[in-house]
Design a protein around this nucleic acid. Structure first.
Lengths: 112, 112
DNA sequence: TTGACATATTCCCATATGGGAATGTATTAT
DNA sequence: ATAATACATTCCCATATGGGAATATGTCAA
């Protein structure tokens, strides 16, 4: 059995580098598909397919403007990912403490 | 072309739900493979394969203890994911502000 | 309508899984 | 050396991609 469908999970949707780039690009303001195509140098169908995935998991919103479709990152949907990674924050802080302490011990040679 | 190999990217490695569970389980202290098998109710080969992926991207460390292999989450490797999601923090905060402001306006009817 | 734009969808295909089953490899116990 | 224990790896297979090319759909202009 392969990995769960990308459309079922934001972690999965974000696993694709191009989709992360799209989310970055659409974070500040809504943009039409054409802008994404130009900015990321991808084929239009490719962009549309990625946007479809992002839309399905709620990572972007859309609105039609004439014949253009304006997409924008829905930051709120990224929050769960942030929360999950945050649960490890204290662990890497501990790791840094250990490294720092060792460095300080080693920089005080023959202190006795 | 399918997605890049999971072994090449922590985002990809973490896209698999079981691997996230393993990282959670190994965050506090090192554990032998058998414990993971028991805790997550997965087949041993499955667990070993997931651990292999996590090890390749640096998300866990190992050390041998007799015939057991003790794995532990390397929190530091999760940090880049945290940083990426963090770049969207101000956006969802803005969204919350907008929601809050609207709620406050609506709770002050006929104020003029 | 007809045509030009801007996007979305479909088809085809090579590749990366992830699980199950079987097998291989260390390491310790006897 | 032999068996048992604890893992890792390999093989086979069904499924989920992601890209390229072609095509379909929707909207605006003339």
């Amino acid at each position: 059995m392969p990995r769960a469908a990308t459309t079922s999970d934001p972690f999965n949707a974000v696993a694709e580098p191009r989709r992360r780039e799209i989310l970055n690009f659409l974070a500040l303001e809504e943009r039409p598909v054409g802008d994404i195509v130009a900015a990321l140098e991808l084929e239009q169908p490719s962009v549309s397919k990625h946007l479809r995935v992002l839309l399905d998991v709620g990572l972007v919103n859309v609105r039609r403007d004439g014949r253009r479709m304006l997409y924008r990152t829905n930051a709120e949907a990224i929050r769960p990912l942030h929360e999950w990674t945050r649960t490890f924050e204290r662990f890497w802080q501990n790791q840094l403490h250990r490294v720092k302490e060792r460095a300080e011990r080693e920089s005080e040679p023959k202190k006795d």
